[in-house]
């Protein structure tokens, strides 16, 4: 058995996600320690597949993006683009024989907005079954 903390998550997030200011980020990093690397971006539309891939290649067992709710992007279509880029990255992962679930997207909800911390915890739960990435070997 492994503990949840053994998994490292690279988490990109749109800076419009609730409670995602600098102090929230620092608190989260203290809570999760080395298991969580946070990357604030001005809009999820700036995310490229290469960012997710580099995270997986260098340190992460999973790489996710949190976006603002559909229709709430201040740049109109950022979260829509982020979704397509996650799909593209998943395709690349399955092409090289890695579980596509190691990348994912959490789209915020207008009706029930969640804070960055709540989202991060939910993503950790989602990926806890995946185990360590095959890229870094088993030992």
């Amino acid at each position: 058995m492994y503990r949840e903390q053994q998994i490292t998550l690279g988490l990109f997030y749109c800076q419009n996600v609730p409670e995602s200011r600098e102090e929230n980020r620092q608190a989260l990093e203290e809570e999760f320690g080395k298991s969580l690397r946070l990357f604030p971006i001005p809009c999820s539309g700036r995310l490229e597949p290469v960012h997710l891939l580099k995270a997986l290649e260098r340190f992460a067992d999973a790489a996710f993006i949190i976006t603002c709710p559909v229709g709430a992007c201040r740049y109109f279509e950022g979260n829509h683009r982020a979704k397509k880029r996650v799909e593209r990255t998943r395709k690349i992962l399955s092409d090289i024989g890695m579980e596509p679930e190691r990348v994912g997207i959490a789209i915020g909800s207008k009706e029930a907005p969640k804070t960055l911390a709540q989202q991060a915890r939910e993503i950790f739960r989602e990926i806890s079954l995946l185990g360590p990435s095959p890229v870094f070997g088993q030992e």
């Binding site: 290469v50 891939l53 580099k54 290649e57 690349i92 090289i96 024989g97 095959p134 890229v135």
Partner: peptide, 13 residues
């Protein structure tokens, strides 16, 4: 960059 990264991960696996 994407292709390089993907190929390196594939090789590592």
């Amino acid at each position: 960059a994407m292709l390089g990264s993907a190929l390196r991960m594939a090789a590592k696996m």
